[in-house]
Design a protein around this nucleic acid. Structure first.
Lengths: 195, 195
DNA sequence: ATAATTTTTGATTAAACAATCAAAAATTTA
DNA sequence: TAAATTTTTGATTGTTTAATCAAAAATTAT
């Protein structure tokens, strides 16, 4: 296998087929045969571009995480105050989930199923350093406390966890069930906690 | 198969072996052979007591949900005010997770992997009625608003989702990372939102 | 104690799977 | 164009799996 443009395009095609297949049938039912069928290529071609199934899943995970991180940080980076950054973080997180449902489902399927080479599921790895979204959110909260935008006494870890929980839960409980503006209400509750 | 006491005890033994096996190797790697090995019985015996693998997983899910619900509602039911009930709900949820880690891991493994007969993953079913814990939490919030214990203007769905999110996220981010009292801090933040 | 019933075993079967590979096709280089 | 390289196919191999079943063991009823 060479690192050509063709190879790179093919790898992305396979990754996208992997994402859509995960969304359709879930991690427990996925196989290289089904991913190949979705991508309309032969099974051997997947093995040619990825060393094995775990390698494909790993690259898919990296792809999904970076897409989400890029989208959210792009919205946050243009804001000047911690308050604006926090609202941008929440809004863009909810928007990303609404506009990329397949990516979100695939991310959940991988995180709650795939395992590292030493057989530990990703969702059970307690590595805070590696969770860039969590770090971004916590840094915003720390900066807001430091410069006195957020005047209440609160723990940045707990509030960060609550916000992340509210964002991920909101996707699981299908949004369309709510008639009101979940986004606005969530923003209000967060401000109650910190300002 | 008869509905004898022996059969019932055997079924629970198999369910418990299923839970421990799920915790050890995860849903993606589980098989009837491995569950049988953990329970120190033959594979055929599982098929004798459960119609198929999906049936065993289903019974395990029901077992896990009812254990958790029983534990939490037992703590809540003795409290008289909505405030006390809410704190009991949060505390007992966190305590249950800390004291029954295997049950929690197994529950996550099933909810994020197992599928209904029509191939829909449990975590993607938007059935609010069936989520008794969510209903209990929301009812507490509604009652607190009604009797003016909770004086702030808030949406019960959003706050219920935030609390559930904070509880489930707290288990994923390994608790022992925090030096402070997560429970007390979470209680404080919730009160900031509603009182 | 004997018969009837329930429970358990472990071998067997057929299906699905990941990974390999020789050969063919397509593309790039000379 | 011709040779070299990269890309792709699809058949094959060896495992693992869920489920079945005949026979044995254990339990219960008569």
């Amino acid at each position: 296998m060479a690192d050509s443009f063709i190879a790179e395009a093919r790898r992305e095609q396979i990754i996208k087929a992997c994402i859509d297949t995960l969304e359709e049938i879930g991690y427990a039912n996925i196989s290289l045969t089904k991913i190949a069928r979705k991508a309309k290529i032969s099974t051997g071609l997947i093995s040619y571009h990825f060393s094995d199934k775990a390698d494909l899943i790993n690259h898919t995970l990296i792809y999904l995480i970076s897409k989400q991180l890029d989208f959210i940080s792009e919205k946050v980076v243009h804001k000047n105050t911690a308050t604006e950054q926090l609202l941008a973080f929440i809004d863009s997180s909810l928007i990303y989930q609404e506009t990329n449902p397949n990516n979100n489902i695939a991310l959940i399927e991988i995180v709650f199923n795939a395992q590292t080479p030493d057989k530990v599921a990703y969702y059970r790895i307690p590595d805070e350093e590696e969770d860039h979204l969590y770090t971004m959110l916590k840094d915003i909260l720390i900066e807001g406390k430091r410069n006195k935008e957020f005047t209440r006494d609160f723990d940045t870890d707990v509030v960060a966890i609550m916000i992340q929980g509210a964002i991920s839960e909101s996707m699981l409980k299908s949004m369309n069930r709510f008639t009101f503006d979940y986004r606005a209400e969530l923003n209000k509750m967060v401000m109650n906690m910190i300002k």
